[in-house]
Design a protein around this nucleic acid. Structure first.
Lengths: 129, 129
DNA sequence: GTAAGCCTTCCCCCAAGGGGAAGGTAAAGG
DNA sequence: CCTTTACCTTCCCCTTGGGGGAAGGCTTAC
C-alpha cells in the first residue's frame, strides 16, 4: 500500500512515516514503477508499534531498540523490562523536578497580590531581592 | 566588563549570554575600540533575572515579557501573577500527563517477568496484541 | 618570540518532525 | 481527450535553546 494509507492505519502523519523511512527505522520496499514507497502489513504493524512507544515517551532511538527486540522472537523479556524501568525512573525524576518547580511558583504566586500596584514578590524573587 | 565576567557573575555560559545578546534580550553596549561587548551592572542583573526565570521553566519569549515587566517600574503586579498562574497550569497539565504515562508503564512493567524467556507483556502491549 | 587567555563572527549540530514548493503520476469526471 | 483532484516524490527552511569548534584578532606574561 502507499504511504498515505499506511500512515492512516498507523495513526501517524505522512511526514512522520516518511521520516521513519529516512532514518531507517521502518523501511518499506520501493515500487520500481512509480518510485513510491510500498508498505506491507508488517510495516504497518511496526509503525503502530513505534507510534505507541513514542506516546509512552520513548525516544526515537529507544524505539529503534524496542523494535529490534520486538522483531527478535528469542530476546529475553528482561531487556525490555529494563528499558521500561529506566523510562519509569526518568519520568519519576521529571515528575519530581516539575513538582518542586510548581511548589516554588505556587509560593510566589500566593505571595503576590496580583493587583494594579507595581510591587510584585514574583519579580522580586526573580531579581534576587 | 567583558562577556566572560558577566557570564560568570550571572551563572551562565558565554554562549548563552551571547545568544541573549543576539536575540535582543540583554543587549550590552559595544566597546568601540575593541569591538567587544561591554556589560554594565544592570545587564548582569538582567542576565541573572533571565537565568532564574529560565530555571522556572519560562521560555525565552516569556522571559522577554517578564523582563519587560521587570523593567517597567509602574507595571501592575497583576500581569506577572497571571503569567505565573498560566505557567503553573502548564506544569499541572504536564504533571498529569507524565503521571498517567508512568501508571501505564508501571502496569506493564509489573506484568512482565523480566526473565530470560521471550514472552513479554510490554512488547505485546506495544504491538497491540 | 610565543604561549595563554581573552574576544569576535560564522557555520554546523541536536530532536522529531512541520510547512510548503516544485514536479511527477494515476484515476475519475466532463 | 483534457482537466481536475488526489496522490506521491525530493528538497529546503523552520522550530527551542543553545553547544562545539574553526578561523582570526587583541593583549599580557613569561
Amino acid at each position: 500500500m502507499q504511504i498515505g494509507e499506511a500512515a492512516r492505519r498507523a495513526g501517524l502523519t505522512v511526514k512522520t512515516v516518511r521520516y521513519y523511512a529516512n532514518i531507517g527505522m521502518v523501511t518499506p520496499r520501493q515500487n520500481m514503477v512509480t518510485g513510491y514507497r510500498d508498505y506491507a502489513e508488517g510495516d504497518v504493524a511496526k509503525l503502530q508499534f513505534v507510534g505507541k512507544a513514542r506516546k509512552f515517551d520513548f525516544s526515537v532511538e529507544e524505539c529503534r531498540e524496542l523494535l529490534g527486540l520486538y522483531e527478535d522472537r528469542n530476546r529475553p523479556s528482561r531487556e525490555v523490562k529494563a528499558m521500561t524501568l529506566k523510562k519509569i525512573d526518568e519520568i519519576d525524576r521529571r515528575l519530581a523536578e516539575l513538582q518542586s518547580l510548581k511548589d516554588e511558583l505556587s509560593g510566589l504566586a500566593s505571595a503576590c497580590d496580583g493587583d494594579n500596584r507595581p510591587d510584585c514578590p514574583i519579580l522580586n524573587a526573580l531579581s534576587g531581592k
